[in-house]
């Protein structure tokens, strides 16, 4: 007794599942998201962290630190590695420059399937009042 049919069916299912990502994307060229900078951002040339790659990798941690410092210590002053001073505020600093959330934040977040809860409170760049 070999159960040939069952084994072959099982193997086809197995290989199908394993190779799922290959045929799901259908060998299309999928371009990485292109982040658009606003005119103001372009002008500023550098962000709170001058290294662009570092910014891409670590901005969430920086924001986490900012949140802690502002909420717990009431301190809003941030001195960047380039010596410049910034106000620690997602809405007033980050989103002031990068006012194009859909083209700037969301594109990458969607691509990498991250769902930050920043915008649970900070809805579309409302200016914070001091």
């Amino acid at each position: 007794m070999f159960n040939k049919k069952l084994v072959i069916a099982g193997l086809i299912i197995f290989v199908g599942i394993i190779t799922f990502p290959f045929w799901f994307n259908q060998a299309k060229v999928i371009a990485p998201p292109e982040v658009k900078l606003t005119e103001r951002a372009k002008e500023a040339k550098e962000c709170v962290l001058p290294d662009k790659l570092k910014m891409r990798g670590e901005h969430m941690q920086l924001l986490d630190v900012w949140r802690g410092t502002v909420v717990r210590e009431g301190n809003r002053k941030y001195v960047g590695t380039n010596g410049k001073e910034y106000e620690m505020s997602l809405s007033n600093t980050c989103l002031d420059c990068h006012s194009n959330k859909a083209d700037f934040c969301d594109k990458c977040h969607e691509y990498a399937s991250v769902d930050p809860y920043c915008w649970d409170c900070h809805i579309d760049n409302p200016k914070e009042t001091k």
Partner: peptide, 25 residues
Amino acid sequence: IRVDIAGIKELTIGLVTFHPIIPDG
């Protein structure tokens, strides 16, 4: 040790679409 997620996805998507690419950083 933070890595650039979007860059990594570029690499992995490149692999499964048979358009392999090594992004910087």
